[in-house]
Design a protein around this nucleic acid. Sequence first.
DNA 1: TTTTAAGTCTATAAACAATATAGACATGAG
DNA 2: CTCATGTCTATATTGTTTATAGACTTAAAA
Lengths: 134, 134
Amino acid sequence: MRLSRKSEYALLALVDLSRQYGKEPAKIMDVSIRNDIPKKYLEQIFLQLKGAGYVRSFRGANGGYSLAKPPEEITLAQIIRLIDGPLASVGSASLYYFEHTPIEKNKKLLQVFKEIRDEVSEKLESMSLSDFVD
Amino acid sequence: MRLSRKSEYALLALVDLSRQYGKEPAKIMDVSIRNDIPKKYLEQIFLQLKGAGYVRSFRGANGGYSLAKPPEEITLAQIIRLIDGPLASVGSASLYYFEHTPIEKNKKLLQVFKEIRDEVSEKLESMSLSDFVD
DNA sequence: TTTTAAGTCTATAAACAATATAGACATGAG
DNA sequence: CTCATGTCTATATTGTTTATAGACTTAAAA
C-alpha cells in the first residue's frame, strides 16, 4: 500500500475541511495555499472526492467546498481506496480489488500478505478525519 | 508498500532455491518454468539478487544459481527492500529511504503511517525463506 | 445587467517506473 | 571444440503519476 502524493494531498485537504465543518465552505485557493498543494491539481482531487460523495461544492462567488458528512464518518481507508485503490500489497491479497498475481503459487507467502492487509485495513478503517483535527 | 511483480517473482524464485539448498545449483530455465516467470526477466532478477549477496552463481555447463546463505537468514523484508525500496507507505515515514513528503504537515497523520510501517516491518523482518518451503 | 470570483470539465504534457525483450559476449564441463 | 549455461547492457512498450492549460458555467454583488 504505497500512498501516492495525490492521496497525501487529499487527506491534508480533507482534514483542512474538517476544521471548518459546519461553517463557511473553503475556497480551493485557500486550501491550496494553506497546505501547499498545486491549485489545479487540487481542483481535480476535489472533483473526485465530490464524485464519491465525501465533499459538496458551491459555485459562483462565495463558493467553495465543504465536507458532505461529519468528519467522524469519513475514514482514512475510504479516501485511500478511492484515490489509490487496494490497501493490500499484492492484488491477489485484496478483497475489494482482487486480481490474480504470481505470488498465489505459494499459499503461505500469500497468507502473509493477507495478514498484513488485515492489519492495515483495520487500522485505516478505524481512523476518521476527526482524529486529525488539532 | 505495494509489491511489484518483480518482487513477487524474486520471492518465488528464492523459495524455489531454498527447496534445494545444499544440493545442486538450479538453472534459470528450470526456475523460470517451475514458477512461470519470464526467463529473460528472471535473469535480471537473479543478477540483482547476486549483487546483493543473496545468491551465488556458477557459470558454464552444469551452472546455475544457489542461495548464498541458509534460507533462515534471508528475510522477506530484505528482499522487498532490495527490489522495491521502502516498506513504508509514504517516504516521510520510512527509516531506510526517508524523504520529505506533504503529509509531514500533519503530524498525527504521519504518525499513523509510521505505526503501520512498524507493524509491517516487524512482520516481514520476522519471516525468512525457510518459512515458505512446504 | 454587468462584473468578477468562484467551481467544472476535458485534454494533454512531462517525467518516471514497471515489465519485459534482445542480442552479443564470457565461461567451463565434457 | 562445442554447447549449455550465466553476464551485461541496451532498448521497447506500456502505464502511472503529477501535474498544467484553457475554455466553460454559475451565482453573488455592484
